[in-house]
Structures are given as structure tokens and as C-alpha cells.
Design a protein around this nucleic acid. Structure first.
Lengths: 246, 246
DNA sequence: CGAACCTCTCAGAGCGCTCTGAGAAAGCGG
DNA sequence: CCGCTTTCTCAGAGCGCTCTGAGAGGTTCG
């Protein structure tokens, strides 16, 4: 059985082979970063730079999901979507789109069960959305973990975006939620500020690691408030989330 | 079965052949030191001096991991990364980068599960990171030792950066941790102060062996405190870590 | 026995890491 | 347009880490 970074079994297809994802973006750097993150999940990834090769690749690879930039040099997203569905009818699609384009026409897409993420995005967000899509597409029973993340008495319901500790509801801002999700997906593992920055913040974020420290301190106030601390600083290395050892 | 310095079986590929590593750096001296340290692990190493020959070498060698200086004379890190992935899709990459360049362009690289080390680095750090990468890349079951190092009742969890003796948690500073890791990777073997200095401290460290003595004394206070001593001085030779013989 | 050397400990300076608090900028809704 | 939330910046306090230097004890060897 193949495994992912956390030692968990990877999310696989019915026959045990890894899930296949096609990444379509005309920016090669971005495509590289994306496919790196998806490979890290234990998935098999291929990339394409335009609509035409995307459709060609899809026909060959028969991917379970496609990550698709709507702004492509040759065609627009909808045309590609249509042609993808003729090649692979049950494929899931996660659209990448500029913020201001959202209102336009993407709205009708989620109706089909597909989803979208606005640029600039964070890698954790893309991975989370993709997992959501695949889960809803009927791969649920193959998932190693449910839609719930649990570390000690800390529980996160990703779909409901609800977090509780010892049964008590904790309210989090979007960034706080994303940061905590990353920590909870990597419990007992020291994560460097650079790693956190790369995964939780958007890829074009210019700011420095100081933001991470700040948001860690926010999380502590809400998650650890008055309780046995779960978020620990490892000087010179990063941060780690561990079940409280009482 | 081939073995390493410590008499342990080497970390090998599925077919039993040694792991293959490609070192890419335009400084031949540094590349030599690095490949020496990696060969010492029982791995098969080749070197390249620029991006173009790196890609060529990778295509031929089909390495399991690449140690890659980001500042190369001909191309930038991302481009090499992309081309490496087309030649060898599941290759792990450990980037070498200057400290101030970290924030800039490394962003997104660790996202893929790859990792980086800032110059100047210590050889133990490079080896440790490389082992971490390879382990996470699915070589886990091939590893002779788990992510845990054990000597007597002394246990180190490298990922969580946690050390316990007889179940009791021991808190260590980064340098103390690195030094203890080196000792634990070489139990029952006398290590000279020069060896320790070369491995644990950065290659450009100007200081003298006195620092080693100092840090050994710190370690003793924390690891041996009140217990049967495990860290022993061998006068005129160095230090040795042994399980307590009670 | 005395000198030279090795080893360990202690005290302290410098410095970088970590966190806090205040507040500015941006987005959103009323 | 105003107020609220979210996000980010900035400055600074505190403290732990790292290394240096001095000196004491132990060992070796002449």
C-alpha cells in the first residue's frame, strides 16, 4: 500500500492504484508547484499548458479529477470543460480563476458538483477542495480519514468548518482555520515556518514568516486558552501540534 | 547486503541496489564534501555542476533524490525542478540555498514535499533531511530503522524532534539535538571532536573543538542527569554513546 | 614530583528568535 | 458612508541559544 507524508494510506482508486489528477495551467511554475503538492498527497499527476493538450492528456490519462485554469491561451474554460466531459464523463473539475472573474459565469459551475478556487490561492485550499470533490464523487469509502480531523480532544469538521475542543465550539477566522487544518493534518510533526507559509498562505504572498508567528499566537489564544497547551514552539525548528499529555 | 559505517544495512531501493543520489552544485569542493558524506551512508552518488548537465545526468542515472543548489550558473531552480520531474517524475529534491534567498523564491518548493537547507549547513542536517525526504517518499518500509532512533532506554523521534530517556521527556536546543542525533546514529563508536565538529557544525564554522566539549557537557546534564551515564569520554580520542549497562 | 595537556564547569556577552500589543490597510455589510 | 472583521505591519520586550574566556581538576609523562 502506498503511503503519504503522514504515513497514512493514500487516497486511492478502487483498484488500489493512486488517484490520477491532471493539472492545466499555462504558467509552468504554478503548474509545477501545484503538481508537487498533489504528488505529495500520494496522487499521480500530469500537467498540460493549454486546452488542446489538456483534452489530449485527459483522453490518455483518464484522470479522476482535473485542476483547470479558466484563463487559457487557446480556449476558455467552458469549452475545455465540455470537451473533457465527452472524453471522461465522470471527471471532477476544480477551476482556478481570477478573483474578479468569479461573479461572471463560474457561479453555475458548482451546480454540477464541480468547484472553484480563486487566484491567488493557498495549496492547502486546493488540496482540501480537491479532496472534497473526490469524496463527494463517491470515493468516500476509500478515504483514509473521514471529513473529520481529530487530534486529542480537538476536533475539526472540514465540511461544516467547525472546530471544537473538549466539546466547546471555537470560532476561527478563515486564515486561522486554514492554519489549524494544516497543523491537524500533520500532528506530532514539527513544521517549519517556511513550510507553513508555503502551504497555508497564497503562493504570491510576499510577506515574511512573521505572519506565521502572529497567527500561531491567535490560534493559541483560541485553541489553548486556559487549557493544557497543544500548540508548541520548537525553537529554531518551527511549531508542532500534539494531543495534550495530561 | 551492503552495509554502512554503522554496520546497519544501508537504505536501499526495492531491488536491493543502493539508493542513487545526484548532487548538483557549481562549487566542486562543496559537491565533493557532500557526495563524500552521502557515499558514507552507503548511497551511490554522482555530481553535476550546472542545470543542463544535472538534467542529463538525472536522465541517465534515474536518481531517487537530487541535492540541488538553487543558484546555478545557467538556470534557476524552478526550471531545473520542472525538467527533473519530466525526466524522473517521483524524484525528491533537497534544495541548497543562501539564507537571504529563502523568503524570495524558495516559496512553493517545500509545498511539494521537497525540502531545503540553508547555506552554510552541517552535513548531518543534509543527511537527516535527505533521509526524511526518502522516507516520506515511500521508502519507509525499506528503511532499516524507523523514524525513531533508539539506544538503550534513550529514544529519539526525529520528526517530532522529541527525545525521551526511560520515558521521560528531555528538552534540547537545536544544536544539542543535532549533536545527540549524531551520537545516536553512531552508538558504541568513539567519535573524535574533529569528526563531530565536521559533521554537526556548519562547514564554515571557524570555532574550535572547545565548543564540542561544552555541548557534550550540556547533553550530559540533560541526558545523563542522575542516571547511569551513557555519554562517556575517551581521553585523547573523543566521546562515545553506549547503552547504560546496569 | 612537577610540567604539560586534556577535560570539564562556570559566568557572561551578543544576538537572534519568539511573542505581544498597537494600529494601519483592505474587504464586507448595513 | 460608517462600523466591523480580517489581515498584515511595525516596534519592542524578553529570553533562550550559542559561543568565548577563565580557571579548576584530573591524567599523563618526563
Amino acid at each position: 500500500m502506498n503511503t503519504t507524508r503522514s504515513g497514512r494510506p493514500a487516497l486511492t482508486r478502487p483498484d488500489g492504484t493512486p488517484l490520477r489528477i491532471l493539472v492545466v495551467d499555462d504558467d509552468p511554475d504554478l503548474a509545477e508547484v501545484l503538481s508537487g503538492a498533489l504528488r505529495y498527497e500520494g496522487w499521480q499527476v500530469r500537467t498540460a499548458g493549454d486546452g488542446a493538450s489538456a483534452v489530449a492528456e485527459a483522453g490518455e490519462l483518464q484522470p479522476d479529477a482535473v485542476v483547470l485554469d479558466v484563463m487559457l491561451p487557446d480556449t476558455d474554460g467552458f469549452a475545455v470543460l465540455r470537451r473533457l466531459h465527452t472524453v471522461q464523463p465522470d471527471v471532477c473539475v476544480l477551476f482556478l480563476t481570477a478573483r474578479d472573474a468569479v461573479e461572471d459565469r463560474i457561479a453555475g459551475i458548482t451546480a454540477g458538483g464541480d468547484d472553484y478556487v480563486t487566484k491567488p490561492f493557498s495549496l492547502e485550499e486546493v488540496v482540501a477542495r480537491l479532496r472534497g470533490l473526490l469524496r463527494r464523487a463517491g470515493m468516500a469509502r476509500l478515504l483514509d480519514d473521514g471529513p473529520r480531523l481529530t487530534v486529542g480532544d480537538l476536533v475539526m469538521d472540514e465540511e461544516a468548518r467547525e472546530v471544537t475542543r473538549a466539546g466547546e465550539l471555537i470560532e476561527l477566522s478563515p486564515t486561522e482555520f486554514e492554519l489549524l487544518r494544516f497543523l491537524m493534518r500533520n500532528p506530532r510533526r514539527v513544521l517549519s515556518k517556511a513550510q507553513i507559509l508555503d502551504r497555508v498562505w497564497s503562493y504570491d504572498f510576499g510577506g515574511r514568516a512573521h505572519v506565521v508567528e502572529l497567527y500561531i499566537s491567535y490560534l493559541r489564544k483560541k485553541v489553548d486558552a486556559g487549557r493544557e497547551p497543544m500548540i508548541h514552539t520548537v525553537r529554531g525548528a518551527g511549531y508542532v501540534l500534539k494531543p495534550a499529555t495530561r
